[in-house]
């Protein structure tokens, strides 16, 4: 699975998140959108839900990974900041865990 496939999965998961949200809390889906952190669109609960949804989508592609390891939390640069860092983090986790 390459980066563009992973990015697609993240985008799909974000679209799923948007479907459950009201019109005024939609997350703009673009490279520059801050997802989590200062001025981010997701609070910690929403981030957890997004990660769970991404895990479910990866599981459908027969990739069983956990995106909730301690390392990501303590990493100096948050892997959950935006679409690019999130995609990179997920490919790293897949490479590591599979």
């Amino acid at each position: 699975m390459d980066s563009s496939d992973i990015e697609k999965i993240v985008v799909n998961a974000l679209q799923l998140t948007n479907q459950s949200r009201s019109d005024n809390t939609q997350i703009p889906i673009s490279e520059s959108t801050v997802l989590f952190g200062k001025d981010g669109h997701l609070d910690s609960m929403a981030l957890v839900a997004l990660l769970m949804d991404i895990e479910d989508a990866l599981a459908e592609e027969s990739i069983d990974v956990s995106l909730s390891d301690e390392k990501a939390m303590s990493s100096s640069r948050s892997p959950f900041k935006n679409l690019t860092s999130m995609t990179q983090y997920i490919s790293d986790v897949i490479a590591e865990q599979s």
């Binding site: 910690s44 609960m45 981030l47 957890v48 990660l51 769970m52 909730s68 301690e70 990501a72 939390m73």
Partner: peptide, 8 residues
């Protein structure tokens, strides 16, 4: 258990 929120 979840590292982000403790539990979820």
């Amino acid at each position: 258990r979840h590292p982000i929120t403790g539990m979820t």
